[in-house]
Structure formats: structure tokens, C-alpha cells
Amino acid sequence: MRVLVVEDDFTSRKVLQKILSPFGEVDIAVNGLEAVEAFESALGDKRPYDLICMDIMMPEMDGQEALKKIRAVEKSQNIRPSDEVKVIMTTALDDPKNVVEAYYKGGATSYVPKPIDKHMLLHLLKNLSLIQ
């Protein structure tokens, strides 16, 4: 599994990297702009990501905007919805509006609150058939 962790907070980034690294290659981006660049680069290299874990609130470009751009790139490349990268949004925000915006309108696959619960995340990845 190829994973892109998009997180501006160092501690959250390290926690996600530690949880996910036993299951495959984990790349890091610190904002939405880097996330879109990494996503496009991976597609160009014919090594697309299987999973993106992305914070909603970030500098440069937030997670919602990055997700919209990633979905637009997939559409421009004629990637079928069933083959789109799985995107799990993470946020410390206890704001249903942001979650609804990212999850339902933005094309996120799922959502996980912070602090990240390792067992919850792994259970979600199993449900998405990304891990055994």
C-alpha cells in the first residue's frame, strides 16, 4: 500500500506515519499544496497512492481545497470513481459543517477525529480493504 500523510502538525504526522508504515510506503506532505503536487507526481510515475490521510485545517491550502483538486485531477485523467484514491480526512475540529463539507461534498472516503485512535483507523482501513 502507498500512503500519503498530509498534516501540518509534526506530532500528528509522526503518529500517522508510525501507525501506517508497517503496511507500506508512507510519504509526507505538510500542506494541501504539497499534497496535490505529490498526488500528481505519483500518478505521473504510474505509482499512485492507495490512501491519503489528510488534515482539514492547514496553511497554504486546506484539506478541503486539496481534496477538490485531487478529485479534479482524477476526473481529468479519466479515473473511474471506483478507482479513486481513498481519502480519510482527519481533524481536531468538532465542527459538523467542516466534516460534512469534506465528507459529503468534497469526495472524502471517510473521516477520523483527532487525536487519532489507532484501532479505529486500522478498523477503517480493513473495512476499505486496504489492509488485511
Rank of each mutant, 00 (worst) to 15 (best):
M61Q: 14
V100L: 13
I52S: 11
D95I: 02
Y103H: 09
G63R: 09
K18E: 15
M89D: 07
A72G: 05
A92E: 15
P96D: 06
A92P: 11
E60F: 14
G106W: 07
E65K: 12
E84M: 06
K75W: 06
P22E: 08
R47L: 10
E65R: 10
Y104R: 04
D83I: 01
E37A: 12
D62G: 05
V99D: 04
K18R: 14
K105L: 02
A92Y: 13
K46W: 10
M58T: 09
M61V: 10
V99S: 09
L16V: 06
G106N: 04
S82N: 13
V15Y: 08
T90R: 06
D50Y: 06
R80W: 07
A72W: 01
A66C: 07
K18V: 00
I28H: 03
I28T: 04
E101W: 14
T90C: 07
K46Y: 13
Q17C: 00
V100Q: 05
D62L: 05
N98E: 11
I28Q: 01
D83L: 11
L67T: 05
L20G: 07
L93I: 09
E65A: 13
D45P: 05
G32V: 12
K105G: 01
P48T: 02
D83C: 13
G44S: 13
V26C: 10
E74R: 10
R71L: 03
G106S: 03
